[in-house]
Design a protein around this nucleic acid. Structure first.
Lengths: 105, 105
DNA sequence: TAGTTATTTATCATTTATGTTAATTAACAA
DNA sequence: TTGTTAATTAACATAAATGATAAATAACTA
């Protein structure tokens, strides 16, 4: 069906997740902007970007000697749509839960 | 901040993702109901459930000698809220993209 | 009780992921 | 040209994930 497992797998690493969150908040940034992060030697960072690229989560734009990365909106949209497609399930489940808790008073 | 990377990591395996999708569609099921799946020896399946439990994605209910699993609605809700929190970004990005494509006609 | 069913835990082997250092590529700057 | 900056690729080591078989646990059934 979908490629969501690959998307989730790529986001299932704390460093990559932080990269994506930062790109989402700040917009496109060159790879080098992330070298201050926790783990990160340049090759490690480069590989994280490769994983994100191959999962279709980010895209690369080349500007001179810089690689500028940004989040592909479709990637986040796909995640949103997946979770929304089960909304009826989780919303009613949570409603029932809240109700049950309220009855304990 | 969040535990989302752990959630994503757990869902980033095709077998576990399939388990979760089936639980979401069919509702709670005993572990044994999944032994027809692709990989799956009973111990492999058991470990997949353990990963899902530890990530807070499923919960276990014991009925006699059966372990009945179900999806914790909060897990899906959390994913939904994360993607929604960046909705402005990805919706406007996609709008711009559609507009740019339309202009090519 | 003895055997069966459902599931998990223990051990071990193999694969995949991830980090490191060294070398490479490409563009810029003196 | 020579040196510097930005990023990647190559080669290697180590850790984590995942699967298999065997054994253990717990509850049901004859």
């Amino acid at each position: 069906m979908t490629v969501l497992p690959q998307t989730f797998s790529a986001l299932g690493n704390a460093t990559r997740f932080a990269i994506v969150e930062r790109l989402l908040s700040e917009g496109e940034l060159p790879a080098g902007a992330f070298l201050d992060m926790n783990d990160t030697s340049p090759p490690a960072m480069s590989r994280h970007f490769k994983v994100l690229r191959e999962a279709g989560i980010v895209e690369q734009r080349i500007d001179k000697q810089r690689r500028i990365y940004s989040v592909r909106p479709q990637a986040v949209q796909q995640i949103c749509e997946w979770s929304i497609s089960y909304r009826k399930f989780w919303e009613t489940s949570l409603d029932r839960l809240a109700l049950a808790l309220a009855e304990d008073d």
